[in-house]
Computed example of a mutant assay.
Amino acid sequence: MATASSPHSVSHEVDTPEAGRIALKFFFNLMEKWGCTAEQQRVLLGSVSNTTLYKYKNLPRVRLPHDTLERISYLMGTHKALSIIFSNSPERAYEWVSKPNSAAPFNGQSALQYMLAGRVVDLADVRRYLDGVRG
Rank of each mutant, 00 (worst) to 15 (best):
T3A: 11
T3W: 14
T3L: 15
A4V: 03
S6H: 09
P7R: 00
E13D: 11
V14S: 00
T16E: 08
E18F: 15
G20I: 00
F28S: 04
F28G: 04
N29Q: 09
N29L: 11
C36L: 13
E39A: 13
Q40W: 13
Q41W: 00
L44S: 01
L44G: 06
L45W: 10
G46M: 09
N50C: 13
T52S: 12
L53V: 02
L53W: 03
Y54E: 08
K55P: 01
Y56E: 02
Y56N: 02
K57S: 12
N58F: 07
L59V: 02
L59S: 01
V62H: 13
L64G: 03
L64D: 01
P65G: 09
P65M: 07
P65D: 08
H66F: 14
T68G: 01
L69F: 10
R71P: 05
R71W: 03
I72Y: 03
L75D: 02
M76V: 06
G77H: 02
G77N: 01
G77D: 02
H79V: 03
K80C: 04
K80M: 05
L82G: 07
L82D: 09
S83G: 10
I84F: 05
F86T: 02
N88M: 04
N88K: 04
S89N: 09
P90E: 04
E95C: 12
V97T: 08
S98I: 03
S98Q: 05
S98N: 10
S98L: 06
K99R: 07
P100F: 09
P100V: 08
N101E: 11
N101I: 02
A103I: 08
A104C: 02
P105M: 09
N107T: 07
G108C: 13
S110K: 11
Q113M: 05
G118A: 14
G118H: 09
V120C: 04
V121N: 10
D122L: 12
L123H: 06
D125W: 02
D125I: 00
V126D: 11
V126H: 07
R127W: 04
R127I: 02
R128Y: 14
L130P: 07
D131H: 06
R134Q: 07
G135Y: 13
G135A: 15
